[in-house]
Design a protein around this nucleic acid. Structure first.
Length: 791
RNA sequence: GCCUGGAUGGUGGAAUGGUAGACACGCUAGCCUUAGGAGCUAGUACUUGAAAAAGUGUGAAGGUUCGAGUCCUUUUCCAGGCACCA
């Protein structure tokens, strides 16, 4: 036979990827009667760097699952699109001096080609860019839905400003005080912006997440981000005044220990100060503090000033000084705290710096109050008593960290906000029939300047008021890219629909997503926004689901060979193209799976990849030992049965790395036999197909089966007759709990029989004396453990 | 500080409470070859030993159990996330 078979991955991959694409092999029949399975990857920003091996980790895993489910006779929807609107694309366009329209086209083409090269099975009929007019029409439509429900509103408030991107950004886009995109220090600016009222859905967001099949860490992240805390608001009266300062505390039991009040520099309580000298001093202080964002204020030094105001502790009438300090955040609680140096580290640090005394009033170790009226009473009881003692001066409340979602941007490359300003009629939403509001093309310089670039287009700005038909102007701000991606998953179901966001029946049928895969960096951004938008669309009757993603998994990061994050800066980016050229797409896919559990991060090691390439070569050479004549041997059938079972099990339990080992183990066994039956070979190709689609299709073709292997059903297990070998098992022997070898015994052999055998076995008869046996632990077919007295 | 994961050979990693290190990479030796960064065969946790074999061994210390990498308690270290959130 053909002895020197060489597997030519280039030739074979080029052949099949063309045929598959031409046939759109992975197209989904929306109206199929089979059970549906919707599996989705977080779609990428098609930035300029191209696809590297890290991107493919998640895509390969979903591709394997999609192919497996397809073979299990589900109608599988596995689509792909491009998150092309927004800062990543626009910044890339600016850097390369091109326009974002062209950049989007070029980059999406490149990304798509690389996915095709990697054999990722996508229904390309459903592809879209979020910057397509036919897509952002519906982004704007969703904005109007929110607007009409009162969930989209404009407000002047301190917002995060990135001085390099020249736009506002949301809280979720600020990472440790720096801009997520460019790493610049974020400033605080007081400007009018558009918000989505996500805070209205806090309770739903917190409750509904509990039942989702999501990684625990992600659920916890969202909970922390929402940051619910239950506490009490307390009024502290100002001496010689009718005014009060409202504070928020979660530790009302410490109120006796209050030795000062501190308010935020932005606090309205500053107006209570009447002393002119003091006002000057404080204005000076505020000037020094306020240009900084709350996030970037120095944490170690807690600066502050006495305001001259004296507050009265409502619990005991004690007079305490009021300070202004930059460690108090205006945006949380009431922007004022009761300072309890004895029981709060920050208060303690502030008190130390400003010479304020500290009174210990609670013993947290013992869980009791050790001061005043409630001395000796447990904290829980004291809390309630204090609250009722304070009566009208206190009120139980719940505070959250989550703020409303800031969605407007002073940038060009995004969906224009569909609002019109009319002198007569005020703020007017664009009528649905006028959508989409297109981005103007007549802007020469679209680069960010701090004011919305769209404002410089006359043709865009000048418009007729939809109500009174008088001249009016458009809102020149655009929507954040996270608005685009907060609903994209539902567009794949009916992507070409021009009349509605999606056919109602189809949306009902295909939602929710059964399996969602993507990076954990989206835990508090995209994933939270998508859940929110889904809940709004649900209330509007547009979708019938309450949660978009039933099951979520994160693929771990793939670092460069040097263990650092893959980046141009380090020169450690391994392109998908490089890996495919060297060893082929099938090897690349299998290697990425073989590296370890999917959720775990790993470093790329090209050298290790040779292992899976050797495997692929040996699979190719199986043709040499293909036995066309004889019937199945029992052992051959048993081997393939085991493989089918274990691959199914391991795909379903998401252990793709173990799948690869199982294939290798199987191959080792088969090579030992020097022959493989056609039936087993056929099944082997079938189970291998989700992992290595190219070589599987080629071998399928070679053995004369009908195109395509990827349209076949998952192989079934044939029952084999039990033979002699099946009658025996190797039973591990433990003596005093320690493994001492094993013996060959009949399957289902009982305990006393086994002991008889052991007593005769030359290896064990010296060690085992029947009369000394104290106890025997026996688990049929699993283990026998013999315990002696003298342990 | 808080939260979430981890810790198993030289490396990546396997292991429903039941033979730890599967499967690979690398390495060592041999075969084949003009050659090998190709292929094949054998070996490869550590210690002792020529070998047979014995002992030790899953970050550390305890505990539960006939039996623990796996369960419980304490602890150390590593990675990631959040953070003046009152």
């Amino acid at each position: 036979m053909k002895d020197n078979l060489e597997y030519n991955h280039k030739k074979i991959e080029n052949k099949w990827k063309e045929i598959w694409y031409k046939d759109n092999l992975y197209s989904t029949d929306s109206n199929s009667l089979k059970p549906k399975f919707y599996i989705l990857d977080m779609f990428p920003y098609p930035s300029g760097v191209g696809l590297h091996v890290g991107h493919l980790k998640g895509y390969t895993a979903t591709d394997i699952v999609a192919r497996y489910m397809r073979m299990k006779d589900f109608e599988v929807l596995h689509p792909m699109g491009w998150d092309s609107f927004g800062l990543p694309t626009e910044n890339f366009a600016i850097k390369t001096n091109k326009n974002p329209f062209d950049v989007t086209k070029e980059n999406t083409r490149a990304f798509k080609q690389e996915l095709i090269n990697a054999g990722i099975g996508i229904d390309w009929n459903r592809e879209f860019d979020t910057s397509d007019e036919s897509y952002y029409k519906w982004t704007q439509w969703i904005f109007l839905k929110l607007y009409n429900k009162g969930l989209a509103y404009k407000k002047k408030s301190p917002v995060n400003w990135c001085p390099s991107c020249l736009t506002v950004i949301s809280n979720e886009q600020v990472i440790q005080g720096l801009c997520e995109r460019c790493g610049s220090k974020v400033e605080l600016k007081n400007i009018e912006q558009w918000f989505f009222k996500i805070t209205k859905y806090i309770d739903n967001l917190m409750n509904d997440i509990k039942s989702l099949d999501w990684p625990k860490s992600t659920k916890v992240s969202q909970d922390n981000w929402i940051g619910k805390s239950e506490g009490v608001r307390v009024k502290f009266r100002i001496k010689d005044s009718k005014e009060y300062i409202d504070i928020f505390t979660t530790k009302i039991e410490t109120i006796y220990g209050t030795t000062f009040i501190a308010i935020a520099p932005e606090s309205k309580y500053i107006e209570l100060i009447k002393d002119k000298e003091k006002i000057k001093e404080i204005e000076e202080y505020i000037k020094n503090v306020s240009p900084q964002s709350e996030i970037t204020r120095k944490k170690d030094v807690k600066t502050g000033l006495k305001t001259g105001l004296i507050a009265i502790n409502p619990i005991n009438g004690q007079e305490i000084p009021v300070y202004i300090s930059d460690y108090i955040l205006m945006e949380y609680g009431t922007g004022a705290v009761m300072g309890v140096p004895a029981h709060d580290n920050r208060d303690k640090a502030f008190a130390k710096l400003h010479g304020i005394k500290s009174i210990e009033v609670v013993n947290y170790k013992k869980g009791i109050i050790n001061h005043g009226k409630y001395n000796g009473i447990s904290i829980d009881i004291a809390k309630n008593k204090i609250i009722s003692d304070l009566s009208s001066m206190a009120e139980k409340t719940i505070e959250y960290k989550l703020r409303d979602w800031l969605v407007s941007r002073e940038r060009y490359w995004g969906a224009p906000i569909p609002i019109i300003y009319c002198k007569e009629c005020g703020e007017v939403p664009v009528p649905e029939t006028d959508l989409p509001i297109l981005i103007p093309r007549d802007i020469k310089d679209y680069r960010p300047k701090g004011t919305p670039p769209l404002a410089s287009s006359k043709s865009f700005m000048e418009v007729e008021c939809p109500i009174c038909h008088e001249p009016a102007t458009r809102e020149p701000k655009t929507l954040d890219t996270f608005v685009d991606s907060s609903w994209y998953y539902l567009r794949f179901i009916d992507p070409k629909n021009n009349r509605s966001i999606g056919n109602n029946t189809l949306l009902r049928k295909w939602l929710p997503i059964d399996f969602y895969m993507g990076g954990d960096e989206h835990a508090t951004g995209h994933l939270l926004y998508s859940r929110f938008i889904t809940k709004v669309l649900n209330e509007e009757g547009i979708v019938s689901i309450n949660e978009p993603f039933l099951k979520l998994r994160h693929q771990g990061k793939l670092f460069g060979p040097d263990g650092r994050k893959m980046s141009k800066r380090w020169g450690n980016v391994v392109s998908a193209e490089f890996a495919e050229k060297t060893y082929g797409a099938d090897s690349l896919r299998m290697y990425e799976m073989f590296m370890g559990p999917l959720s775990q991060s790993n470093s790329w090691d090209t050298r290790s990849m040779i292992g899976v390439r050797r495997f692929i070569d040996r699979v190719w050479k199986l043709q040499n030992i293909l036995d066309k004549n004889t019937l199945n041997k029992n052992i051959d059938t048993k081997n393939i049965n085991n493989l089918i079972k274990s691959i199914s099990l391991n795909i379903e339990s998401e252990k793709y790395n173990v799948c690869v080992s199982e294939f290798m183990k199987y191959l080792n066994e088969v090579e030992k036999l020097d022959t493989i039956s056609k039936d087993s070979f056929r099944k082997f190709i079938l189970v291998l197909a989700p992992f290595a689609p190219f070589i599987a299709e080629e071998l399928w073709n070679i053995i004369g089966e009908k195109y395509s292997v990827h349209k076949q059903s998952w192989p079934t297990i044939i029952k084999v007759k039990e033979d002699k070998n099946d009658m025996y098992i190797n039973l591990p022997i433990q003596i005093n709990g320690k493994y001492r070898g094993n013996i060959k015994v009949l399957k289902d052999q009982e305990e006393n029989e086994i002991i008889k055998i052991l007593l005769k076995d030359t290896r064990f008869q010296d060690k085992i004396k029947e009369k000394d046996i104290r106890k025997v632990i026996f688990k049929k077919n699993i283990i026998i453990n013999i315990i002696f007295d003298d342990i």
